[in-house]
């Protein structure tokens, strides 16, 4: 049972991070960050390079060791509830020359449901193929993963997460180094997941698309700067605080007031 002292928001949240601190070499890279992911939301974690966005995710998922803080999934400790989470890592985190086909990688999302005496089944293969179809990659099932383009590799990772049918999907920069068409395809899939009532949490780099893609944001730079619905938290003041004055007034005005005006602002370039 969830601890009765916990708040309602924490018990309802698929990922509630409280006081999370991570340090490398005695220097905190994430310092006491709180974020309660609203269920059914599409949330973005935003901040400049080196702000600890990916580290926050990895620590929240138990990949990186945390110095302090609590992570709860529906009010229970993360370790007991990993089943509710699916993770889409950065593409560059694996060796794409690995001897595996697309279908093998997607199948890895099902490994924990397989006992050692099982040699896979038609049903599992069907589930994997369905996930691939959802990201438009069903024609590539038998391809060696090294032969895929960057955008295709990203979609394979997304399919591996889809196959788990998790309540919360966590993505680490899913749009890094993919072409515009792939980005549109991925966001389409993510939005359809949200429409099914699932929650999404993304590390995101492109400030210009935040308003189009997400409904909640966490602005951070080692520490939490602001969090909440995009309209409330994604403000000029908060952005200025997050990026430490690295955004020009023109950029800021464009981002905050007329978000659909077009030109992309890559964070941290200025």
């Amino acid at each position: 049972m969830p601890d009765s002292r916990l708040g309602k928001a924490v018990i309802a949240s698929p990922l509630a991070i409280q006081g999370l601190t991570v340090s490398y070499d005695h220097r905190p890279v994430v310092h006491s960050v709180d974020f309660i992911t609203p269920p059914g939301s599409m949330s973005a974690i935003i901040g400049p390079n080196g702000a600890g966005k990916s580290t926050l995710l990895k620590a929240a998922l138990g990949i990186t060791r945390r110095l302090s803080g609590e992570v709860r999934v529906f009010g229970r400790p993360l370790e007991q509830e990993t089943r509710h989470l699916a993770f889409v890592p950065q593409r560059s985190s694996v060796d794409w020359d690995f001897p595996a086909r697309v279908i093998d990688v997607v199948g890895m999302g099902l490994y924990r449901d397989l006992r050692w005496w099982q040699f896979g089944s038609r049903q599992l293969r069907r589930r994997a193929m369905e996930s691939l179809a959802r990201v438009g990659m069903e024609g590539f099932a038998e391809r060696q993963i090294g032969q895929l383009s960057g955008g295709q590799q990203q979609r394979v990772f997304l399919a591996r997460a889809l196959v788990q049918e998790a309540d919360l999907t966590i993505l680490d920069e899913p749009f890094a180094g993919v072409d515009a068409a792939t980005e549109a395809a991925i966001i389409e899939v993510l939005k359809s997941l949200r429409d099914e009532g699932r929650t999404l949490l993304c590390v995101h780099h492109d400030l210009a698309t935040v308003r189009d893609y997400f409904d909640h944001v966490l602005l951070m730079n080692v520490r939490r700067i602001a969090a909440g619905p995009v309209d409330e938290a994604f403000t000029e003041e908060n952005l200025q605080a997050t990026y430490g004055g690295r955004l020009s007034p023109v950029q800021l005005a464009r981002l905050v007031e007329s978000p659909r005006a077009g030109r992309r602002v890559e964070a941290g370039q200025r």
Binding site: F87, Y111, W116
Partner: peptide, 19 residues
Amino acid sequence: WRRDLLLLCFDADFARTQG
């Protein structure tokens, strides 16, 4: 342990998130 080991080799971070 063939699957556990394979997952470890391909994507250890992902393996951790899977418990």
